[in-house]
Computed example of a mutant assay.
Amino acid sequence: MVLVAWIVAIVFFVVAFLGLIYPIIPSVLFIIGGFLLYGLLDTFSQMGWLFWTIQVLFTVLLFGADTIANLFGIKRFDGSNAGGWGSTIGLLVGPFVIPVAGILIGPFIGAVLAELLVTRSGFKQSLKSGVGSLIGFLTSVIVKAVIMIVMIAIFIFFVT
């Protein structure tokens, strides 16, 4: 049964990493789901209160990393809140409209359009905000990947 528990956990972890490319997939839920299913299929005995406390803290960090990195990128390039919202909408819609490349193009176009339509910024400033959103998104992907790797490493440390 231990082998089945590991296989299920690994499948959930792989799906979580796919969430970095397709943000509609809730990565953190698949990470936690992998932990829970492993515990149900094998045992929760190695995953005590310390393990869950650490994982909850990293989960909060994961949620915050996405928002903070995106807003930081846009603000750093003098974008507005509208650019942030446009980037977020583009991030969710982009991969479905333009498969694969939409994950990068969507946030950029969303931020540029939002700046142009809502704040009536000039084209140059709108492009600058779009670049900021792209940099913020790429930064958040890297930060989230590192946090997820650390969460999985902690899991492996506790259960082995």
Rank of each mutant, 00 (worst) to 15 (best):
V118F: 04
I105A: 11
T139M: 14
E115K: 07
G84V: 09
W85F: 14
L117K: 06
K124I: 10
F123R: 13
I74G: 06
P99F: 00
F108R: 12
G132S: 11
I135Y: 12
L134W: 11
L91F: 15
S140E: 03
L127S: 11
L117V: 08
A145L: 13
P107A: 06
F157G: 04
S126D: 12
I147C: 12
S87F: 00
P95C: 07
G132Q: 13
I89H: 06
K128I: 09
V100Q: 09
I142R: 06
L116N: 04
M148Y: 04
L113I: 07
G73P: 01
L104E: 05
F96K: 04
T139V: 15
F77T: 05
G132F: 06
L113D: 00
F137H: 06
A114Y: 05
I147N: 13
G122F: 04
P95N: 04
I105L: 11
V146F: 13
I98E: 03
S129V: 07
I135M: 12
A145M: 13
G136F: 06
A153V: 09
L138D: 07
G94Y: 00
S133P: 14
V112F: 08
L92W: 10
A145Y: 08
P107W: 02
S129N: 14
G106S: 01
S133F: 08
G136Y: 06
S140A: 14
I74E: 10
V118T: 05
V141A: 08
F108A: 09
Q125Y: 02
V143K: 02
F158H: 14
T119A: 08
A111W: 03
S80R: 03
T139R: 07
L91A: 15
I135F: 10
V131R: 14
S80F: 02
G122T: 08
T139E: 05
G90N: 04
S80L: 04
K128A: 10
